[in-house]
Design a protein around this nucleic acid. Structure first.
Lengths: 342, 342
DNA sequence: AGTGCAAATGTTACCGGTAACATGTTAGCG
DNA sequence: CGCTAACATGTTACCGGTAACATTTGCACT
């Protein structure tokens, strides 16, 4: 492949002059410039980004390390990150960890080797070891959607506690008192904060917390089936379920139907995060949504700041608001039509 | 940041010896190795991937250039690509063109500069200029989902003609004769092939082709509204619509509902590609699906072959089968219950 | 003892771009 | 006319890793 020196030879100048023409990084006589430009065109010279990166110590590459690229929430985050990064001349490597800390660690190691300029990370566990690794290597990092215990870092996340509170209170307002919750993994902050909101809402209405009503699963569709079975066996049987994310909610809906229960007539079901294309044609699920695209944008902007700034200012925590969208699955319609539910 | 030479100094050996320890690329005495490994651990040495890439002329990076990362079809393709690439030690840069040839060209230029090892591309136009650019720079490239006229290249795609044929014939089998189609952009092969299948199915049943029934839009939700309006104004009004992809179909469904028409009672609607999470809770749309994940896997595997092989064998065309999933939106249930439809 | 060979380690140079410094040239000004 | 300043261009070295080649050491075998 053609190099600066090839171009230089063809144009009868030195390599640095070619570099100056390409980057407008120094004075070049108009006639010389023209000759160089002709040589570049003739030889179809394309500068080698790696050589440039090696010398300049920046790669103009970010990584987005997320837990499930199949989940529309993350897709939308990715879109926000990609757009914001591209607008500033950065590229994004998307890495999918499937909530597996080992996979996550692997990716981090490779990304450090690649000397990416920074990283947006949805941590899959509370273990701080790999985060220490990042700070040791001076790699700017912004956490997204989740924090890690005992480690002060930049983070952009939704207001999970408020969301959990809002969903639960809404159900209480519809007359429910036996409200169960399908939580995500205990050690993921998103889950514990949402659970907190749930607890606080119950407490605020003097409803005692039933340990039987709190179940832990993964954030995937698959784990719901077992949980639904257990919840239906609880006594008294819950009249409403809060699912901790969109995929678990879908799983729950299927599982409930398989058990012969209608939603919302027999049991109400609400959840966090939407599935935009689904609700567009079938506005059924009552959900608490976050602006995922904005979350991606904010995280990227914060990361860029951090890259420019490195260890300067204190780590920031940006908390984005959540919105409750009331549709059918909570049974609000039923209540409206028939007075108090149950 | 620590380099081989720093480690070498600390261990009292030469740089190349460190390199040999790290890569097991030459004989090293056990005692020396131990000393070097200790130095690596003490200094927390991490090899610089860029320097390695510069020397070895490979980046272990692929790019996936697609047209809409919000579309679940492409997300699933991305997942297939990512998994397959990661399994072989490659990383993927995902680039989103929004069907904009200018954006696509930009990305290609930057990717050539980065000297990525290869590229999987869903071309946004029939223009071959940028593809010539790729071959000129000797960049292995596999087209995905779409081909480009008059350019022999590796490609992995679905059997669009067959799919278009199957959807149309299914509607004909249900008694429809006035079948309209919402096509994608004329110059995208995916669209023209599907349209071809539609035409062939009509011809096979001696149904004349009505130019009024063929409309062209983008592959996005937004373009459907206008098209639906136009189709409803045609005379006779079509009794069924074939949408060319999942998002257009959603748009059409909304537009039809807005016009006060029920699907499938008043008009049937079928489409290409599913929205998995939507149909999981609401199995409504009759669709012709492709295995997107497999498409991504195959494309990556083919690309890897091509990277290993460069200009060796002839370009391959891999055509994946499509499957018709009959659900409600085509009106099959109605027909079953009530005899011939309309 | 002499020869041959493998293992162990080192030296040099290069991948491609560019910062830092050096040199040559021209124009402006007293 | 001589001096300075700004412009134009070039030389050298470095970013960090490693291929190619060179050197040294130790051992087996004749």
């Amino acid at each position: 492949m053609v190099t600066v020196r090839d171009v230089a030879r063809a144009a009868g100048v030195s390599a640095i002059t070619v570099s100056r023409v390409v980057n407008a990084s120094g004075p070049v006589n108009a006639i010389t410039r023209e000759r160089v430009e002709k040589a570049i065109a003739d030889l179809r010279y394309v500068p080698n980004g790696m050589a440039k990166s090696l010398k300049s110590r920046q790669t103009h590459t970010l990584a987005l390390v997320l837990t499930d690229i199949t989940n529309p929430f993350w897709t939308t985050v990715a879109r926000g990150v990609e757009d914001t990064a591209a607008a500033r001349g950065y590229h994004v490597i998307v890495c999918n960890t499937d909530e597996d800390p080992q996979k996550e660690l692997n990716y981090i190691n490779i990304l450090v080797q690649r000397r990416i300029d920074g990283m947006i990370l949805a941590p899959s566990s509370n273990n701080t070891e790999r985060l220490d690794l990042l700070s040791r290597y001076d790699m700017p990092c912004v956490l997204i959607d989740r924090h890690v215990k005992g480690k002060k870092m930049d983070i952009v996340r939704g207001d999970n506690a408020k969301g959990g509170f809002a969903l639960t209170r809404h159900l209480i307002g519809l007359g429910h008192r036996d409200i169960a919750i399908m939580s995500g993994p205990v050690e993921v902050s998103t889950a514990s904060q949402r659970l907190d909101g749930y607890r606080r809402a119950l407490a605020a209405h003097d409803i005692p917390i039933q340990p039987d009503y709190i179940k832990y699963g993964t954030f995937k569709e698959g784990s719901s089936e077992q949980i639904v079975k257990e919840l239906l066996a609880a006594s008294p049987r819950p009249t409403a379920i809060v699912a901790m994310n969109n995929l678990m909610c879908i799983g729950a809906l299927r599982a409930l139907r398989a058990e012969g229960l209608r939603v919302p007539e027999d049991i109400a079901l609400v959840s966090f995060d939407d599935i935009p294309q689904a609700s567009s044609i079938y506005p059924f699920l009552t959900v608490c949504v976050q602006d995922a695209q904005k979350m991606g944008q904010m995280a990227t902007a914060l990361l860029m700041e951090r890259i420019a700034d490195k260890a300067a200012s204190e780590p920031q925590e940006i908390v984005l608001d959540t919105t409750l969208i009331v549709r059918e699955s909570c049974g609000a319609q039923l209540v409206k039509n028939a007075g108090i539910h149950r």
